[in-house]
Design a protein around this nucleic acid. Structure first.
Length: 294
DNA sequence: AAGAACTCCTGTTGGC
DNA sequence: TGCCAACAGGAGTTCT
């Protein structure tokens, strides 16, 4: 799926198209994605004004008038594309339907006032949408219990040490645990651990001392996480297989991967003679350099 | 009760 | 070319 940088990029692409507009019509082509769509979904969206778009973890939160929020999780393959109808089509020349995927898994189509058409496509249907009565979102089962935003001041060495203390799980699992830090997936976990020079299999507990104080590892990891996420957002996210931005453009960060997908290639750390290895951790691929990640 | 395993679904890729 | 297995960026649920 899109991880935090991809979701943020999509939010940035959708915001100017949606904010301040109304949903004039919704085409719902199936009753469920990963989970059933909300009851009377079309009816509850039609005519609503979109106030603003926000991101929380990997969720796009579409704030509607009347204090209701459409929360969207893209799962692994969910994507939005923006096109236009009528005379707005010419003004939106840069907006194109996605080149891949086509109409086959276009499950929802939102017609927006002013002429934009926003299509939700999701081949594997691991994505989901829910309507939350706001303004307090913290009671929602999906959002409740999410950990800190990694790019906020809430993520710091002391916090990480506190949450890692006594944990037997490995540090990569900790990074990907949405209840601790929200928004990091497999790719950025690998990249952050490489940049921090930390072995993904190291026990998470090593981030903290017996008294829950942060070890130097914790500080390095926080810095690496924040640096890689910021860099990826700056590049418009990464484009692999299914992800693309709302306007059909692709992100560029995949060209800046230092470890992900590089099995068998030389480690990019200066003066390191290691070779990138791949192993399976918790059922997913971990890429790492056995020489400089200790 | 933490942590691992399983599960949803479809498409792509690589080996034979 | 065809067939089949392995794999893909997630995370809720079920197990041990």
């Amino acid at each position: 799926m899109p991880e935090l940088p991809e979701v943020e990029t999509i939010r940035l692409g959708l915001a100017p198209v949606l904010e301040g507009r109304r949903i004039v019509r919704v085409e719902q082509r199936r009753r469920d994605l990963r989970f059933p769509l909300p009851d009377r979904f079309v009816e509850r969206l039609t005519g609503r004004r979109i106030e603003r778009l926000e991101r929380r973890a990997k969720y796009i939160l579409i704030h509607l008038d009347g204090d209701e929020v459409l929360a969207v999780h893209l799962g692994m393959t969910g994507r939005f594309s923006v096109s236009a109808r009528g005379k707005r089509a010419r003004e939106c020349a840069t907006f194109r339907y996605p080149q891949r995927g086509g109409a086959k898994h276009d499950h929802l189509v939102f017609f927006i006032s002013g002429g934009a058409v926003v299509t939700y496509n999701d081949a594997r249907r691991f994505g989901y949408m829910t309507l939350i009565a706001g303004p307090d979102l913290t009671h929602n089962p999906y959002l409740r219990g999410l950990g800190v935003e990694p790019l906020s001041a809430d993520l710091n060495a002391a916090y990480l040490a506190r949450r890692a203390h006594g944990k037997r799980a490995d540090v990569k699992a900790l990074l990907m645990d949405q209840r601790i830090i929200a928004g990091i997936g497999n790719i950025y976990a690998c990249e952050a651990l490489f940049r921090a020079g930390i072995d993904p299999c190291k026990p998470a507990a090593r981030l903290a001392t017996k008294s829950e104080a942060p070890t130097p590892l914790a500080g390095r990891l926080v810095a690496a996480v924040q640096a890689v996420l910021k860099q990826a957002i700056g590049a418009g996210g990464s484009t692999l297989r299914d992800y693309q931005q709302a306007d059909g453009r692709v992100g560029n960060f995949q060209s800046q991967f230092q470890i992900y997908g590089r099995e068998g290639e030389p480690c990019l750390r200066p003066s390191c003679r290691g070779t990138v290895r791949r192993k399976t951790q918790g059922g997913r691929s971990t890429f790492y350099c056995p020489v400089c990640q200790r």
